[in-house]
Structure formats: structure tokens, C-alpha cells
Design a protein around this nucleic acid. Sequence first.
DNA 1: TTCTTATTGAAAATAATTTTCAATAAGCAG
DNA 2: CTGCTTATTGAAAATTATTTTCAATAAGAA
Lengths: 145, 145
Amino acid sequence: MDWKVILSQKGYRLSEPRKRVIELLETAEVALSPQQIHQNLQQKDCDIGLVSVYRTLDLLTKLELVTLVYDLQHNPGYMLSTTGHHHHIVCQECHKALEFSGSDDIDQLVERVEAETSFQVRDHFLQLFGLCPDCQLNNDTGDQL
Amino acid sequence: MDWKVILSQKGYRLSEPRKRVIELLETAEVALSPQQIHQNLQQKDCDIGLVSVYRTLDLLTKLELVTLVYDLQHNPGYMLSTTGHHHHIVCQECHKALEFSGSDDIDQLVERVEAETSFQVRDHFLQLFGLCPDCQLNNDTGDQL
DNA sequence: TTCTTATTGAAAATAATTTTCAATAAGCAG
DNA sequence: CTGCTTATTGAAAATTATTTTCAATAAGAA
Ligand SMILES: [Mn+2]
Ligand SMILES: [Mn+2]
Ligand SMILES: [Zn+2]
Ligand SMILES: [Zn+2]
């Protein structure tokens, strides 16, 4: 469902900051930190306060409209999320991030870990890192996996 | 190999702060933040500066002797790492964390994602969340997966 | 329009992390 | 052991990130 409808239905107003942040995230193919979002918006046009960026991201996260991801250096970044079970793959070179659909792929692993550890598994966080198509071309540094 | 040997061989001194931080992490079954480590040390005995905790964790992370993990609220915590390919499972109730050995478990997933996205996968971050054996007993809140 | 109140943004407060630098102590050489 | 060299420490200051406060604004209903 459209984010405008979701916000409205839950009683949240369609304010300028919210529109702009989402609009930006819709075009961004890279996960952005609150500061980066703020800077990008300033450069474009509007003077959205950094505070509102934080507040908007908090709200959108709560509503599960955005997801927080990390790069391998643990820098945080926000991305629009689609619905359903999914994860992200992040380019180590240009930080471009892509969502991919999750499935029952780690079910076997979960079963094994539950048996090994006696933990009851209820959730998981999975993120892949690598090279995007573009950066594979510009990179002949060979495999270093 | 023993951390004392590793530190020495690389020319790092076996200082009090380093000993104490590692000693603490060795007994901890929960991932600890720098602040938590500092507090724990103070309570026990020694007046290690918080700055040194940060520096020690940075060093140990660089040497891959400790690993940074997150809980579902994205709070950071450091754990001793063992060698080899492994991941962590964190209890959502008491935050107890356990390492489990990684294997080729997500190979199929990686292949699928590479085909779908044209990314070249080179690394991954995987963390499981759930209930540890203890907390399963004290929790009859039913399944909410 | 007008009204109600959720939302904004500036500023201040708080929290987390890093830098600086003089004092200390780890490990080596004698 | 003893003294030297220099990596390391810790207090304080600086920086950075995030949250709180609160009066002014504007979104959306009436
Ligand atoms: Mn999954
Ligand atoms: Mn793995
Ligand atoms: Zn790339
Ligand atoms: Zn537990």
C-alpha cells in the first residue's frame, strides 16, 4: 500500500518533511544516514530541520516503511523497505544497496542452530556484501573472499 | 592461538586495561557495550579509563579477537570471537549471546541472489534472535513469530 | 474559512565517541 | 635486577550524534 495512505489511515499528517524524506529515499539507491539525508535535502531545495529527519525516520521505521541497514564498517543507513520478508545486499565499493526477497533459505541453518544451542529462533538479520554490476567492471583487484 | 601471544607477536604490550577487558569478555555470556564494560570493571576492582576501553576494543576488533554484534534494537555489543566462520544468536529476553559455527548453509541463497541481482557476493552478516533455554522456561507468552 | 492539535525547527540538553598531551609503566638491553 | 625507550594510559577538552523542550506553524477536519 502507498505510504501516503498508510500515514493518513494511522492519523499521521502528510507534512512537508515526511514527503521530502520519503521522496528522497525513493530515488536513492544507497542507504543514507540521517545526516546524509539532511544534507541532500538542503542541497536540493528545502530547509528541513535535522530534527525532523530523525523524527521522520523513527516514525517510518516504526511503521516499517523504512529499514535500517549497516555497511561492513557498521555505518548506519536507512532504506525504503518493501513489504514481506527480505534482506539487503550492499556494494562494498559504491555502497549501492538492493533488496532481495527472503524465503525459507536459512530454514536448515535455523534447525541446525536450534538443535546445537537449544535456543528457540524467532527472528534473524541477514545482510550480504559484495560488488554491484557497475563496480565489478571498474574492479580488477581479483577475488579476495 | 592465545590472545597474549597474538598481542605480543604483533608488538602490542600486555597492559592492565587490555588484560582486564579481555578477562571480562571471557566470562561474559552477553555482548557488552563499551560503557557496560567500563562499569563492570569499575564495580569489580580496577579504575580503567573509558577511553582505554574504547581503544582496547578498537584494537581487538582490528585483530579480530572481538566481534561487534547488535540486538534487534540495534544496540551494539562486543563479544570475544573464536576463529573461523561463525555467527551469533542473541536472546531477545536476557541478551545472552552464543556463537555458532557458520558453514556453507547460505550458499544456495548466495547463488540465488547473485543470479537475481548480478551482484558478486563476497561477505555476509548473519545474526539470529530468539529465546535462550533459560528464558524459554520463564516465558509462556506463546509463539509470536 | 476557521479551529484544533499534530508537527515543526531553533536551541538547549544529553549521550557517545575521539583527540590531545603529559604522566606512566611494559618490555627490552645491559 | 636496573635503568632506558617508547607504547600506552587517563583526565580533560573537543567533536559528533541524538534527544528533549517548547513556542510557532500548518495539516486536515469541520
Ligand atoms: Mn531471511
Ligand atoms: Mn555464514
Ligand atoms: Zn557498487
Ligand atoms: Zn535469555
